[in-house]
Simulated assay, not measured.
Amino acid sequence: MAKRYIMTVLAVNRTGILAALANALDELGGNMRDVSQAVIDKYFAVIMAAEFPEDQDQEVIVDHIRAICRPFGAEVTLRDPSGDTGFDGETEPTPKERYVLTLSGPDRPGVLRFLAHRLALDGIDLVDLQGRQVANQTFMAAMELSVPPGIDALHLCEELKHEFQTDGITVAMQHRRIVAALSHPEPVGFNTAES
């Protein structure tokens, strides 16, 4: 039987950090179930849901990963989601639609604050966020939203466009299935046989 933990690792980004982390997981009998990794400035950051043998002690897991990843100055935290108060074991009890929202334009204070509050008003969960400041104080951000039933995503997109237009920020929203289809189009077969 396996026990699931949520683990975060923050380390100096150098070639080999992911290999060291993968080795440590392997040696502990661990298995990644869900993972998100990013490099920001000079730091490697990863958060993952990982399963370990049930008899594996939590302190042993953390100490072993720290030891293997010591050359990278790794900081490791391990959380047991079943022991967290308020965690009921359900991630999304009601089916929700997923959308990808993108914003780009001049970097202005308060954009993320406004957006986070506006999404929370409709019970929309921001499940993934990627952003970067590029040349000339311009930012680009893409986020995946989990939208509850009954919320009109297209209306929300129009509302955000109106809110940010005076700042010169462009807003676009697409259903995740459309983004996936555009990213990985299915090959089209052609019948070349003569009739």
Score class of each variant (00 low, 15 high):
P53C: 11
E59D: 15
V62P: 12
P93K: 14
G83T: 13
L10I: 11
D167H: 00
A153N: 06
Y43F: 07
A135I: 09
G150P: 08
I65T: 09
P149C: 04
D26L: 14
R118S: 04
S183F: 02
V179T: 03
H155C: 13
E27K: 13
R118D: 04
G89V: 10
V35Q: 13
D122G: 10
V35K: 11
S36A: 13
S104G: 14
A11H: 01
G131Y: 00
R118W: 02
G189F: 04
D122L: 02
F114K: 06
G105H: 01
E158R: 04
A45W: 00
F87H: 15
L21V: 05
K42D: 10
F87A: 13
L121T: 05
F164W: 01
M1W: 09
G83H: 10
M7P: 08
P148T: 09
R70H: 10
Q174D: 07
F44Q: 06
L25Y: 09
L10K: 03
V9A: 08
L182K: 05
L182W: 03
T166L: 01
T166Q: 00
N23E: 12
L18C: 13
M143S: 05
E144D: 11
L18M: 11
D26I: 14
P149W: 02
L129G: 08
I178H: 06
D63V: 12
P71E: 06
D167F: 02
A120Y: 04
K96Q: 13
T170L: 09
G73D: 07
H162E: 12
G150H: 05
A142Y: 01
H162P: 06
G30T: 08
S82Q: 11
T102S: 14
V134D: 12
L25Q: 06
I6P: 12
V12S: 11
H155N: 12
A181W: 03
D122E: 11
Q165D: 07
A45N: 09
V46D: 08
G30I: 04
R108T: 04
E97Y: 00
L28F: 08
A180Q: 10
V171C: 02
L154K: 09
T102F: 01
F164R: 01
V76H: 07
